[in-house]
């Protein structure tokens, strides 16, 4: 049995003449929280649409938990959950009733509804009509719905977008807890901090191609610029590159001569790394 939850081989997705994904090869091991990043038009959404069976690829093969997405779709359906980027609830129903419908479809006992609502801290609002929910509550309800049947693979499209700090933290905590239980989570996000905080691995797509695939830490190592910003007592500003011996010595000299007003190392900047890798601004 393969350890891969998702195996994508030579995936090509075309919309007419436009190539959205161009020969993507990607393997997501089981039990990882995998981030899929890229600028608009990079092919993230197209890839997700293939994974959730809403589009057929132009060519290539995709296997989820050992099942071919194209030929064995019905077997895959109960195994994954999907949190779309926009909420899609029945507004006239309560949160609980929304989940009841899907609990019935998945043949999940109703007590699981309360568990999921509690996980996303919505139990108190369970019997409130969704029309009265805030945006954050609606998004958390999406996650609760996706968790109902304890999916082995969970796809999330920008799960923390527009959430307040507390709600975003709840979602992140929930995702980490799921991964700890062995669930494979694939998320797309624009939140760099989120990627660094919770993702085990990150794939960066640009113009339909994979430009980077690594852990956030490794990306940090590869792309951190070892620069130090210094403001001297005379008001002058300097930048010292720690990779150049002369500049290291000059910085040391300034520090020893007590001429430094402030000193600050430049932290790893995912945005800059992303810009370098993709040649485009993150949107």
């Amino acid at each position: 049995m393969s350890d891969a939850a998702i195996e994508i081989e030579d995936l090509v997705i075309c919309y007419g003449d436009f190539v959205a994904v161009d020969g993507l090869n990607l393997t997501v091991p089981k039990g990882q929280l995998f981030g899929l990043l890229g600028p608009n038009g990079a092919g993230k959404t197209s890839t997700i649409r293939i994974l959730i069976g809403q589009k057929r690829p132009t060519s290539g093969s995709i296997r989820v938990l050992g099942h071919d997405v194209l030929t064995d779709w019905q077997a895959i359906k109960p195994m994954f959950g999907y949190v779309p980027d926009r909420e899609n609830h029945f507004d006239d129903f309560t949160g609980r009733r929304n989940l009841q419908i899907f609990a019935d479809l998945y043949r999940v006992p109703y007590r699981r509804i309360d568990e999921c609502l509690e996980t996303v801290e919505l139990l108190d609002a369970a019997d409130v009509v969704v029309r009265g929910y805030s945006l954050g509550m609606r998004r958390k309800l999406l996650l609760a719905r996706a968790l109902l049947h304890k999916p082995a693979v969970l796809y999330l499209d920008e799960p923390t977008a527009n959430l307040d700090i507390h709600s975003a933290a709840v979602v992140r905590k929930t995702l980490r807890a799921l991964v700890a239980e062995g669930t494979t989570v694939v998320l797309t996000t624009h939140n760099m901090q989120e990627v660094e905080e919770i993702c085990d691995r990150v794939a960066i797509l640009c113009k339909g191609r994979l430009v980077a695939l690594d852990t956030p830490l490794s990306l940090r190592r590869q792309h951190t610029e070892r620069l130090v910003d210094v403001v001297l007592l005379d008001g002058s500003r300097h930048v010292f590159n720690m990779d150049i011996p002369e500049q290291r010595q000059r910085l040391a000299h300034h520090v020893q001569s007590d001429a430094v007003a402030s000193i600050k190392t430049r932290e790893f900047n995912f945005r800059e790394a992303f810009l370098k890798l993709t040649g485009t601004e993150f949107t």
Binding site: Q54, K77, P78, Y82, N88, L105, Y106, R107, R145
Partner: peptide, 14 residues
């Protein structure tokens, strides 16, 4: 329009 149909289509319902 609201994506609810898609949610049902992604559930075990064929």
């Amino acid at each position: 329009e609201r994506g609810v149909l898609l949610a049902q289509a992604l559930s075990p319902a064929s």
